[in-house]
């Protein structure tokens, strides 16, 4: 009996291939089922950011989406890809600053929604101006659940430093600030929003944001 068992064991050892494959399969299944945040954390912000920018570049380089007449469709696609990588509610919140605390749930949602629309109009049109520049990824600085990834966009002899601030949430590194040529988008918005909300209140801010959104992307606005 003992011998037989041993032989069986030996047989299966001969099929070491199969064992290896099975354990690999197990690993895959296991990792697919394991909490997403473990995976995300493993990958690191820089690798995740690069993956999402590569996805964006696919859209930007898509021959089927080129030309003025496909502008709307293209920008929709860009927004789709880009905003998956953004933590828009955090971005909106930080842009408003401490005034956020004075808003109720409904106002917060309304503001976040308007902020998203504003970004969709302005930031997406900026990305849409992409003309084949090279992007090199410099360093990543990780501090707990926050990170900064520095990149440089090189077009011709011009270099534009572009940094992203990310925060780990539910296992993914999501962008909450973009720093273009040393100018932080969140800081820039905060400097504009606080005086407006102080002077005209929340209603006045909403009015101005709606006006801006209506204007952005129209012919008059470029």
């Amino acid at each position: 009996m003992k011998n037989e068992k041993f032989e069986n064991w030996g047989n299966s050892m001969k099929c070491g291939w199969r064992v290896a494959l099975m354990s690999l399969a197990f690993l895959f299944i296991f990792s697919a089922l394991s909490p997403a945040h473990l995976l995300g954390a493993d990958k690191g912000p820089k690798i995740q950011l690069k993956a999402s920018i590569d996805k964006l570049l696919l859209v930007l380089r898509d021959e089927n989406l080129k030309g003025v007449e496909k502008r709307e469709l293209r920008r929709e696609r860009i927004a789709e890809v880009v905003f998956l990588q953004f933590d828009m509610s955090r971005m909106a919140k930080y842009s408003l600053g401490r005034g956020w605390r004075d808003l109720n749930k409904l106002e917060r949602d309304q503001f976040t929604d308007l902020f998203r629309k504003l970004m969709a109009k302005s930031y997406v049109s900026t990305i849409d101006a992409y003309a084949g520049e090279e992007i090199s990824y410099l360093k990543e600085i990780v501090k707990g659940d926050k990170a900064e990834v520095r990149t440089v966009v090189v077009g011709g002899s011009k270099e534009i430093p572009l940094s992203y601030k990310l925060m780990l949430s539910d296992g993914r590194w999501l962008i909450y600030d973009v720093i273009i040529e040393n100018v932080s988008l969140v800081r820039n918005y905060r400097s504009q929003l606080s005086p407006i909300i102080k002077k005209y209140g929340f209603a006045g801010l909403v009015e101005r944001m709606e006006k801006r959104i209506a204007l952005a992307g129209t012919k008059k606005d470029g």
Binding site: L118, S122, Y123, S125, A129, I196, L205, A216, G222
Partner: peptide, 11 residues
């Protein structure tokens, strides 16, 4: 570029 830069500006 200038126009684009300010396209999202509230002020």
């Amino acid at each position: 570029e200038y126009k684009k830069m300010l396209s999202g500006a509230l002020d």
